[in-house]
Amino acid sequence: MTSTKQATPATNTCLALENVSISYGSFEAVRNVHMDIPAGKVTAFIGPSGCGKSTVLRALNRMNDLIEGCTLKGRVVFDAQNIYAKEVDPVEVRRRIGMVFQKPNPFPKSIYENIAFGARINGYKGDMDELVERSLRKAFIWDETKDKLKESGNALSGGQQQRLCIARAIAVEPEVILMDEPCSALDPISTLKIEELMHELKKTFSIVIVTHNMQQAVRVSDQTAFFNAEAVEGGSGKVGYLVEFNETERIFNAPVQQATQDYVTGRFG
């Protein structure tokens, strides 16, 4: 089992995981993850199914709190605070670390209200029309929606819905956006649009993306973390762990670990 701390890149760290283990009840899903996620870059999590990459992603803004019996050991440090400390309010964490989900999930409200909802509950005092337009523009969906802001978000196509969800996430101006396989329910053209969007967004936000698609990781990410799962003695089922975390180029061209090499060349997974 590898739990070696990888060389920290020269950039600022946005989120630091320190010896993080996550369990569902008595089942340990991920063990001993150490990593420093850089600010202002796109970090991709790759790995076979069941390796715990989504679990780790959801741990970064305490979404796992919603899952019954999910516990975390270790520390997740964001802005010099452990987000799992007792006095931390998970609602505050999620306001600064936004999330985009696998399945597009616009609220059953108008496009305008979808964007305004987050801003309103966060006490936004400025010009709402302006914020809605700015957010939709940033998510490359303004031109398609500007004439139908009053229509339901559900009336959009899947790809448009996902961009709406990204616009919704950036409307509350978080510092980090977590994306859990954001393109897995989309067609290739929509996927391409979202990838272009990510290149644009990383100028303003730090992005962490879980993807099953290795080409996507190569196209969008600066850093890549490869997770794997292996059976452990005395454990029930497989336990996920971080195999290797480095610059994307290194992971795909000159990985240090044999398992990474096997995975990125398509020998398993």
Partner: peptide, 17 residues
């Protein structure tokens, strides 16, 4: 759908909201 709840929680909505 659970995704809807997640969406709201994900933009920083409290449980009550």
């Amino acid at each position: 759908p659970r995704e809807l709840t997640w969406g709201a929680i994900g933009v920083g909505a409290s449980k009550f909201v």
